[in-house]
Amino acid sequence: MWLGRKSARERFEKEAERVFPSVLGTALRLTRSREEAEDLAQEAIVRAFEAFDRFDGTNFKAWVLRILTNLFINKYRRRARGPQIASLEDENVYEPVAEQDQEPDAQLFDGLLSQEVEEALGKVPEDFRLAVILSDIEGLSYQEIAEVTNVPVGTVRSRLARGRAILRRELEHFARREGYLKQGATE
């Protein structure tokens, strides 16, 4: 019996170590504080281990990210920095990602630094940001994002679209400010 327990912990550690960069990265992008992110990530891993018996064995990363998200919502959200969704109406309005129906020039954004991209992402309201992080950085499917964030798939779709549109706008703002993108280049 004890051997079984030991191997369960070892199995968990192996899986957890693999997904830990995603867990910590998501925590960092949600809390925007290294200290809080480490606490949140660690607590999520501990909770996951405590509930490992109940893991259905499908997608470990999505499962741990769901625990992390719930923890964040319940414990950290009130203290978290950054904009949040103003209202449901905001959430459901479609905002095009492209500006002025023009195809973007990819090279214009290539000069952006990782830090600037992260900063732009930080300006996206929290729920939209979470959808974008889970989809575009962590590679989760809509269904998995819906389960992680506890919302319907339709809401995930609209949050992703809004999140990307806001992110795109922020990226462009950074690109202009840093001179990668000339004023009026896409206007």
């Binding site: 990265g25 990602v97 973007p104 990819a106 954004f109 290539d110 952006l112 630094l113 990782s114 991209v117 992260e118 992402l121 974008v132 575009d136 950085i137 990307r164 992110l167 795109r168 990226l171």
Partner: peptide, 10 residues
């Protein structure tokens, strides 16, 4: 593009 930038620069 937005998706690619985010994935590559995160």
């Amino acid at each position: 593009l937005t998706k690619r930038i985010l994935k590559s620069k995160a």
